[in-house]
Design a protein around this nucleic acid. Structure first.
Lengths: 203, 203
DNA sequence: TTACAAACAGACTAGTTGGTCTGTTATCGA
DNA sequence: TCGATAACAGACCAACTAGTCTGTTTGTAA
């Protein structure tokens, strides 16, 4: 009598997505191998091509579901409906960077930015998804700034959208420099400058 | 009577390097194909493996010679021995971004940062080279700030090294966001904020 | 209970890719 | 002039890789 293997297609699909995310995070989309995703999950080719039409479709689904979900949740949680976004932003930036170090001690940076640098100039499907996530991210911060302006915690003479965009850009830049040098001290230094910038947004 | 083909090993090597740079710039190191480099140069496998031991060695040589050379020259030219680095920095940032758009209109971003995001967490040889280039770059700017401090064009109470590091990080962040969204307007917006930051370094 | 479709396993394939190996030609010092 | 060697060309190869195809098992609706 053999053990009856339980089937749960939704869980299987999710496992594939999460394994793919990890592989993409470590090796990039082009460096990600379908076989490695399968090894990580213990599944076979049949399962994979039952749930996804191609490697490309899997990559897109990772952006849509994993990266979007993770980022949306974190920044949404952090900013929420706060009327004093500046300390909230500082907190979430540190929190995120802490969690982006691989289990082997290698700092992998921001999954979204990694994929953006690799794929935005190469593949339209990726670019559109990445652009959408950046847009949502910036808007989330911009609206938080606007609430701060109404509550008097943020200067009224600054453009919330432009400030949000620069915050995202400079944050990604700092994370990227830390990844490039594999040195967290550099992130600390850069983050200090971001703090100066955020303080300059105070009334 | 057949035309005698002229041989010039130094030129051949340089052609391989430049073709490889273009391919890496467009597709990343992992996406770069040796065959495509050969097609671009019109050379054969023999020439390639005569001048380089492997694809990996070629990639390293591209960083050492092409990227290092190009970046060093531009920023050295721009900053030189100037005692007023702020306008010089603004000028070179705009100049560089203009030249980083591919001939098909796709904005490819910064070659060094692209490679850093792709390879720094994966390959030690690449990471060391990339780290060295970032270090040189930041030091060049930091020393320009120090000259500015002595000449009175830059505030004395700021840390030149930290300011240089943040400038590089935020610049790369802005370039990256423009690449991610394939929208130069976003770079303009972010660059304006960098201008604010630079002005805050004035005495 | 029993068709039947969904959910897989896994061998197989066709195309790709970095690298090798043999051979040929240009260059240059003696 | 003439070998010797550097500088190539290009066929070839082994490993890899995304994707296919056939077959098997599990869930499920009638």
């Amino acid at each position: 009598m053999t053990t009856a293997t339980v089937r749960n297609p939704d869980v299987t699909r999710q496992r594939l997505l999460e394994a793919a995310f990890t592989e993409i995070y470590q090796h990039g989309y082009q460096g990600m191998r379908v076989d490695d995703v399968l090894k990580r999950t213990g599944l076979g080719k049949g399962a994979f091509y039952h749930h996804f039409t191609s490697k490309h479709a899997l990559g897109c689904a990772v952006v849509d579901e994993i990266i979007n979900g993770e980022m949306g949740q974190r920044w949404m949680d952090a900013l929420g409906e706060t009327e004093d976004p500046i300390p909230a932003l500082e907190q979430v930036m540190d929190l995120i960077v802490e969690s982006e170090t691989g289990n082997d001690g290698v700092f992998l940076g921001c999954p979204l930015n990694n994929l953006a640098m690799e794929m935005s100039a190469q593949d339209v499907a990726f670019r559109q998804r990445i652009e959408e996530l950046f847009s949502q991210w910036i808007n989330l911060i911009a609206r938080a700034f606007e609430r701060g302006q109404q509550a008097g915690t943020v200067r009224n003479d600054i453009d919330a959208q432009e400030a949000g965009m620069f915050l995202v850009a400079s944050f990604e830049g700092c994370v990227g420099l830390a990844k490039a040098t594999q040195n967290m001290d550099n992130f600390i230094i850069c983050r200090k400058q971001i703090t100066h910038y955020l303080n300059s947004l105070r009334p």
